[in-house]
Amino acid sequence: MSERRLRVDPIACTAHGLCAELLPELIDLDEWGYPVLTAPVPRRLAAAAARAVANCPTLALRLERT
């Protein structure tokens, strides 16, 4: 079965931290405000994850199928 995981482009990410606000269940911020991701994304959080991805101001966050 294919699973979905979050991935951040660390060069594009500018530590806005918005993703962690929208998806605190799966995204933590480190002491400098950069996201620490928990993978994979469970089905019940798929919609919230998609919303976090869509709202990242630098398009750094992606949802990948593995």
Binding site: P10, I11, C13, A15, D30, W32, G33, Y34
Partner: peptide, 9 residues
Amino acid sequence: RQCGPCMFG
């Protein structure tokens, strides 16, 4: 110095 975890960590 492009990625936060590397440039600060």
